[in-house]
Design a protein around this nucleic acid. Structure first.
Lengths: 236, 236
DNA sequence: TTTGCTGGTCCACTTATCAGACCAGTTGGA
DNA sequence: TCCAACTGGTCTGATAAGTGGACCAGCAAA
């Protein structure tokens, strides 16, 4: 062994444009669109993403195969109701992956989010705060009706990241959401959390509103510990 | 405006294989190799990275143009002494980018690294600890000779991330190093830091060795604040 | 000196993507 | 009712990047 390459190279994988496009559309669907909504037209997407229409079509094709979307000639491409089948599917995929990732992700959140909340308490704008209030209100209403409030939970944490006013943080969060997506880790969002979640969110937001960085940090720490307990005990 | 796309899409960029290869080789050089060392052969690299030799050659060509590396027919490709010219060059590039990124990155570090150090204090293995001691020793010796000890500083922080035993953290760190690389932000590593840096590192390592998570966290927080002061005041 | 490595060069082939044209449904207003 | 302006569906030719392989020339150790 002459060169003694003790190095862990990563195998190079050429990223296919249509996969990248698919990710972004998937994100768009998760964040902004609801079942029945129309996607922007293929030509419009091609222009904004600076990519040929062929690539857009390949991406939509792959989303169609995943059952997320349904193109209709002449009418546009609409977001499909998420069927129980596809949820089960992604849930299985989640279990296929090593469970470590979930616990490691929680570790990471436990490290990052408390100081992040503290920073948000200092930097949040009025708009940020009212955005968070809106989210909590939606979470409350859904929960009162016995619905899951999956999206709202993620949105709240994302709103805090936004309020921190730091592009590096946002970049990292995006990466982590990709990690989640890649390992089909919807499971975190699937069950159980809602009960304790709402109360935790309220305490965090209250601290942010009175600009109390320490309290925000502590509230977030407790909130994440609660969530961790639920996820580790119930989902697995 | 029918579709009202309030969305912030990112423009898709196709990653060129040789650029990806160049990144990995650059990382290898920064982390493991010293001037005068030989790179693995082109054929060997092609095999381990699962990429054609042409792509490896393109990457090496680009590193050669950056002055990082010197291919010698028959003998191999060697790592060049980093010339002041190339440092100046990358320094200029650093200034070209918006300075915000630096301060945002420091914010992020200030949030993440203290709890990370605390976690390292709990999870570090014997091997991790002695690795850190080695790094500190090298940093000390270089500094005594009046040399910069650029690499050692980064290595120490990376070693802490390794000791935290969390793949998500490592993934994030890698991403951040890409951010640094992309914006040619060597500047953080270029000047000034060394004096205070060594003392800070010693305090952190001492806390880790006695498994004192709180002390490790505090030491890291102070260390980052010192570094921030230096970077913001002197480099800019 | 010979042998087996190294980088240097070239080329034919495959692939992904692009750019554009044209067809075929749908929709909503004249 | 009809038509114009959208939509997605399909096809084609051009281009760029990467592949896989062959062959050459320089170096270094046996």
């Amino acid at each position: 062994m002459p060169t003694a390459a003790k190095t862990e190279f990563e195998v190079i994988r050429r990223n296919k444009v249509y996969e990248e496009v698919a990710k972004q559309i998937e994100r768009l669907i998760l964040k902004k669109l609801r079942p029945g909504d129309k996607l922007p037209s293929e030509r419009e997407l091609a222009e904004t993403l600076r990519v040929s229409r062929s690539s857009i079509r390949d991406a939509i094709r792959s989303l169609e195969l995943m059952g997320l979307v349904e193109p209709r000639q002449g009418a546009g491409t609409i977001v499909r109701e998420v069927t129980s089948g596809s949820v089960v599917n992604s849930f299985e995929n989640a279990l296929m992956r090593r469970r470590e990732l979930v616990s490691e992700l929680l570790d990471f959140r436990r490290m990052l989010e408390p100081p992040l909340a503290a920073r948000a308490a200092i930097h949040a704008s009025e708009a940020d705060v009212s955005e968070m209030e809106d989210i909590l209100q939606r979470q409350y209403e859904k929960q009162r009706r016995g619905e899951p409030a999956v999206a709202e939970d993620a949105e709240f944490h994302y709103a805090i990241a936004l309020a921190s006013d730091n592009s590096v943080v946002l970049k990292v969060i995006d990466i982590l959401m990709d990690l989640l997506r890649e390992s089909r880790e919807r499971s975190l969002q699937v069950e159980g959390r809602a009960q304790k979640s709402l109360a935790g969110h309220r305490r965090i937001l209250a601290a942010i509103k009175r600009r109390d960085a320490e309290a925000a940090k502590d509230a977030m720490r407790h909130h994440i510990e609660d969530v961790e307990e639920i996820v580790l005990n119930k989902v697995y």
